[in-house]
Computed example of a mutant assay.
Amino acid sequence: MRALVLWADDRSPNLGVRALAHGSAALVRRAFPDAEVDLQNFGRGAAPVPIGGWRPLLREHVTGRHGLKTWLAGYDLVVDTRSGDSFADIYGLQRLTAMTALSDLAVRAGVPVVLGPQTIGPFGSRRGRALAKHTLRRATTVMARDHVSAEGARALGREADVLTTDVVFALPVPVVERTRDVLLNVSGLLWNPGPHVDAGGYRSTVEQLIEGLLAEGRHVTLLAHVLSSSKTDDDVPVVTEIARRHAGVDVLVPTDLADVREAVASARLVIGSRMHACLNALSVGTPAIPLAYSRKFEPLLDDLGWRATIDLRTSAAPVDEVLRLAADDALLDGVGAVRERAEAALGPAEAALRKLG
């Protein structure tokens, strides 16, 4: 079995993207233990040429100049992850079009294309909905990682074949001692102005939250979950800047995915603005309080029975809500049940893949 995982990168500075890559490969290997798994994201990967924007990919449909169709035909299975949350038009139609074009080439090459566990939607534009319907119609198997995504697929004319959960739960669990108290992941994406939440409000929330935790005698370590890169949304300069203003606050910059999973496993609590900082924590048995900024958080976590999410877009008092949850010793008691539900939810996804072997 040769499988290709699209839109995942095990070298990305975003450790959530690495979790998607390793988790997708782990899910494939649950179904096919001896599978050879390659990865392809934008830029360099397993493809014979770097994968770029939508125009070169559409030209490839016509000219076949770079042999992408032939390359794709060498695989037995393509798992299209859409970066976990990019099967939507909230990141722009160009991104959606490029991803659709490469997936279409795989279909034309005669390879089964599985939409791996992911968020489906939202689609606010006519073109976005048309591309989504096209993708869903041509996919061999559609996997939704939450019930709202499954409903979104149904509304677009294709029932999801599998309702599952995030692939991070397919990763092995590190065994380490709990030596840290609170890991607080601060997002460079939200710290800087952007479309998700008000950056000024987010900055104020983070500063007040740190002060509140310190006042309650908690030890706070600021966690970067997106490492240094040329992009403006990395977490490292943000956590470094914040730590300079708060005596006694530490900074943790992991080296890779294994390192961050060991780090969150060593904590008593993770508070995270990056969804996969929270999912990494829950998947290794550490309670997490997500600071949500989009629809992708709450449905997935609700399906796992984890209802500690604070939505920054709607909460009138996010700091108070987080501090109340952080003081609740019962949080730890619920983590084991989350892992059990996640494992059960991965079973149908594994079985659906096995049918394609």
Rank of each mutant, 00 (worst) to 15 (best):
V322H: 04
T179K: 11
D302A: 15
G43Q: 13
A267W: 00
G124D: 10
V251I: 11
V182W: 04
V206D: 01
D329M: 06
V107G: 07
L222C: 09
S86T: 13
P195A: 13
W306Y: 08
E177C: 01
L279R: 00
G334R: 07
R203F: 00
M1K: 04
S228Q: 14
R313G: 12
P237T: 11
L312K: 03
R138P: 00
I271T: 05
V264N: 03
G23E: 13
A258H: 12
T286K: 13
M275V: 08
H134Q: 13
G336L: 08
E350Y: 08
V111F: 00
L356S: 05
R44I: 04
A337C: 09
P56G: 09
L301P: 06
G64E: 11
R30Q: 13
V5G: 04
A109Q: 09
D9H: 15
A267P: 07
V335L: 10
P13R: 01
I90P: 01
V264A: 04
A308S: 14
R145M: 05
F32I: 10
L301G: 07
D256C: 12
D146S: 09
L332I: 11
Q208C: 11
K355F: 00
F42D: 14
S229E: 13
S294A: 14
R354G: 07
A109H: 08
L332T: 14
R127Q: 08
T135M: 14
R203P: 02
G110H: 12
A337M: 10
M99S: 08
R65A: 15
G194Y: 02
I51W: 02
F87A: 06
A326Y: 02
M99P: 06
